[in-house]
Design a protein around this nucleic acid. Structure first.
Lengths: 226, 226
DNA sequence: CAGACATCAAACGTCTAACCTTTAGAGTGG
DNA sequence: CCACTCTAAAGGTTAGACGTTTGATGTCTG
């Protein structure tokens, strides 16, 4: 009798889901070590093999990193980032930049449509921080602020999917950013582009926002090629 | 002798890589069942637990589907699709469409820049097939041709990363397409938009190509909202 | 006291072997 | 021809054992 509410989902999948929930809920913070396998076995009431299947699934997707002889650490809060990072290794800088251009342009357009006053305030603050960091030669802070600005634009788009995609590709984008900045003669203070984008977003001018991003990244592409 | 170039990577990871290679190389075609666990154990020379870790990693990413009591089947050729599909469940139709608009627009622009004569020929052929399918009321063929057209544009962009991303999101995009077409009053023959896009690509007019996609999808969005 | 080295315990990596549950398909009887 | 039964195959799960790596502890030496 099929009364059986049975057809129960594989235990290992439940384990995977529970582990993912622990990470996404923040109970296991980023960069921190999670409990050892024996502890989790006891806590979840499953055998080691089952538990390891769950762990490895998340490890493979980049969310966890398992270090032999040491422990297992949280490396990302989303599962896309792992796959995205792996894809990156197979593609050139130019192709990455082209994809980013597509996402960035759309994010800017939507941000112009949907950004709140808080969004605009945050964007302005990040631009100020970016400028100050450059002035005092703090490259790391500069990169963080620059990336923070772009990521905030994606968030201001009001589209969670776009935002998450952007975050997932973020690590790679950010790497490119760092690579750029180390080139001789790079000037990290092109306020024009970023300020214009913030202006367009605040004004709600979608076309201007999109055009600004387009101009910024295209010049960036030329600079890379040159 | 720790010079050891050793520090060999986990065996399970090698297994995962080998399985992925089998799928991506096409040796294990889509929708087909892969060898059983005992066979793979013998073939790869690893224990069942190790093998299962590799399989489950790919299963979790959506590339394989493991059916208890039956076997394991190939469900996708990329690992992004699984994560992408999962993300889809958490987002609305509108947000999906917005992301697609960003990717589609960029694909069209790049296609106008890089498309070969073969690309254009293929695009024209797909449009013809699309039109004919609509005429004879073959919805499935219509959807297939329509999706094929868009996917071919992404391919013609000459950007493998963009193409792969597009393919990864393809299943979900296609689902939306089918949902649309079932609405009463839907006219699947808007040749204008698609033909104009093909024209722009053939002419190498980037701005026109991007504008055409923008117009098409925006009207589509309005139609969905209305 | 500082640094190099030896040692140990903890944690993950892998293997073996068994038993359970589910599934698809062959086989059988109506 | 259909429905039922039965069975072999395949994956699901568990248990225990041993190997390997890593980080930390402790000790010895200069």
């Amino acid at each position: 009798m099929a009364l059986s509410p049975s057809a129960r989902p594989p235990l290992a999948d439940e384990v995977t889901a529970k582990l993912r929930a622990m990470v996404q809920s923040g109970e296991w913070p980023l960069h921190q070590r999670i409990p050892s396998e024996p502890e989790l076995m006891a806590g979840l009431g499953v055998s080691r093999g089952t538990l390891r299947e769950g762990i490895k699934a998340l490890a493979h997707s980049g969310m966890l990193e398992v270090r032999r002889g040491d422990g297992t650490y949280v490396r990302a809060t989303s599962e896309l980032s792992g796959a995205a990072r792996r894809m990156y290794q197979d593609h050139t800088e130019q192709h990455i930049l082209e994809v980013r251009l597509g996402l960035d342009t759309q994010a800017a357009r939507l941000a112009a449509r949907n950004a709140t006053a808080d969004d605009v305030t945050a964007l302005r603050a990040l631009l100020t921080a970016r400028d100050q960091a450059w002035s005092r030669g703090d490259y790391e802070a500069w990169a963080r602020a620059d990336w923070g600005f772009h990521e905030r634009v994606a968030q201001a788009s009001g589209n969670p999917l776009l935002h998450e995609l952007y975050l997932s590709f973020g690590s790679a984008f950010h790497q490119d950013l760092l690579k750029q900045q180390r080139r001789p003669g790079f000037d990290g203070r092109p306020r024009e582009g970023h300020d214009l984008l913030a202006d367009a977003i605040e004004a709600g001018d979608e076309d201007a926002a999109a055009a600004t991003v387009d101009r910024n990244l295209n010049s960036c592409a030329e600079w890379l090629a040159g």
